[in-house]
Amino acid sequence: MKQPVTISKKICMLGAFGVGKTSLVRRFVYQKFDEKYLSTIGVQISQKLMPPVDLTGDRLQQHNFILWDLAHIEKFTPVIKNYFRGSHGAIIVFDLTRPEGMEQYSVFLDPYLQMNPDNPLVFVANKNDLFEGDPSTIEAIETLGRRFHAPHLLTSAKSGENVEEIFQRLSRQLVERQLS
């Protein structure tokens, strides 16, 4: 059987306070490091090995995501900008129950894209379990996805809805860019 080649990728979790970034990571990773490595320097780091992907029929590739969950990102500081360096992709998380927060995405996304202009993104609208289905909110997240040519997903860290899918989408984008 072919042994997959493991490629580590640094992924940044972006989003305002309380949107559920940490919950998503915890839901996705659920391993011992999520609490243990909580840091006072504004970043929590976790890792997750993705399932292998068959690239060309003769080569299996497996992504090892190193997730940088950045805290207090709404008060953007130069320290946070340093954390963006060398990133391979980003997940931008919004809270469906607080749609007004979506308008503030540029606070952290602009500096991120300034440092990593070609990186793949995934837009995530979290807390779908509490969402009452306001069409304008859905439209807002769809517009963002179109503007940045990135997929968008409605998720719930509580129920686990679409959580795996976020990282699968990101992994797929990274593979596509590698092959193109």
């Binding site: 580590s8 640094k10 490091f33 490595y37 840091s39 320097i41 504004g42 970043v43 780091i45 976790s46 890792q47 090892n64 190193i66 940088w68 500081t77 130069p78 320290v79 900008k81 340093n82 954390y83 360096r85």
Partner: peptide, 16 residues
Amino acid sequence: QLIGAMLTAIRDFVAE
């Protein structure tokens, strides 16, 4: 792997 990332984060934090 996590320690490597944390060391980098600490270094970035200190530098800034």
